[in-house]
């Protein structure tokens, strides 16, 4: 079973994402900010990270930069999932090592499409 770390400060978003991802057969781990997510990745790297941008303590981009320093990080598919829906943010995320990008609001079809594109489905 593939694992996905869902990083979002909104409990509701985490819950919705968990439901969709569990239906797609992922084991889901949750984190409410980048710092908590990075601690989890230091212990064990997931197959995928579904990552919000704006969060307290450590935002999504800071987390991504730190994650991409960890050994073995190249096997982790990072999919941003954010309300930052402009081209500039998307380019910044891809340059920092994101593999895909979801512009909120999302639905199960978009999640499935993006996880297929990164080769996890």
């Amino acid at each position: 079973m593939k694992s996905c770390l869902v990083v979002d400060d909104s409990r509701v978003i985490r819950m919705v994402a968990r439901k969709i991802l569990e239906e797609l057969n992922f084991e889901v781990i949750e984190a409410e900010d980048g710092k908590v997510a990075l601690d989890a990745c230091n212990k064990s790297l997931p197959d995928a990270v579904l990552l919000d941008w704006n969060m307290p303590v450590m935002d999504g981009l800071e987390f991504l930069v730190a994650l991409r320093q960890l050994p073995g990080n190249e096997n982790v598919q990072v999919i941003f999932c954010t309300t930052e829906n402009d081209l500039e943010h998307i380019q910044k995320a891809i340059s920092a090592g994101a593999n895909e990008y979801i512009m909120k609001p999302f639905d199960s079809e978009i999640i499935q499409s993006k996880f297929t594109q990164v080769g996890l489905l």
Partner: peptide, 11 residues
């Protein structure tokens, strides 16, 4: 644009 289109092609 989020259904099937890779983000790199969108950019």
């Amino acid at each position: 644009v989020q259904r099937g289109l890779p983000i790199t092609l969108l950019i």
